[in-house]
Amino acid sequence: MGSGPWGFESPLRHHLQRQGSLPAHLALAGHALKKRPDMSESKPKILIIIPAFNEEANITGVIRAVKTHQPNAHIAVVNDGSWDRTGELAELHDVTVLSHLLNMGIGATMQTGFKYAAACGFDIAVQVDGDGQHPASQIQDLIDVLQKTDADMVVGSRFVSKSGYRPSMARGAGMAVFSHLVSIIIGEKVTDTTSGFRASGRRCIEFFSSHYPDDYPEVEALVLLHKKGYSIKEAPVQMSPRTGGRSSITPLRSIYYMVKVLLAIFIDLMKKLD
């Protein structure tokens, strides 16, 4: 079992780093050479992480929108073992495509993005889902709040103000439970804990590249950040309904979601983070 049954740390990563850190060096060299040569040193390096699983209907639109609204940001599409044309379509654009060999779930997918961001020295990583529900036009709002408040993470909330988002009864109840619980734990009001539209600062990127929950990670990530002593802020956003493809959330899964996340939160509170 090598590293002991509970406290797991990437052995391969450590091995590779001892052997001269091949992935980090190659990735860094690639960026320094051909991406954005005209960037001034003072500007933060921004990475847009687009997790995508079987999103061939939406991925092109999402990449185009992000490029339009964030021309200076670098884009990394993390293709989570899609068996449709998601990967090929993403390759057509001038973006980094990180492809999982097999489907690993959203948590592992985002973590791959964070590992890439950490290895390439990005200052800010923004998650923009591949299904097109996160508005690219509001990425800048998240980044602005992150920089102004010096927070470690900014979550785009559908409930802070003036957003027209009305979830279904069951879903709304579940979201309310999570936001109350997390608000109590964190000691600060968080209105939208399940939003995946969020911007992470440098400390967050480093932390997430070694610790990120597996499935349904959004709520748990906030609790982990709080335990780590990092600050979380919210910014109001408006999300659009899906334009194509289908959601991964079914009624049965949402019950599993509730139970799993509640359990995970309480276990996280007992966990010891290094």
Binding site: R13, P23, L26, A27, E88, E91, M104, Q111, T112, K115
Partner: peptide, 25 residues
């Protein structure tokens, strides 16, 4: 362990591609 391997393979493949050692997907 599986997760770490799959993540590292994704990062390595990208690094090889950027270094011109691997044709595009």
């Amino acid at each position: 362990k599986n997760k770490v391997l799959i993540q590292e393979i994704a990062l390595l493949k990208n690094a090889l591609k950027e270094a011109g050692l691997l044709p595009p997907v």
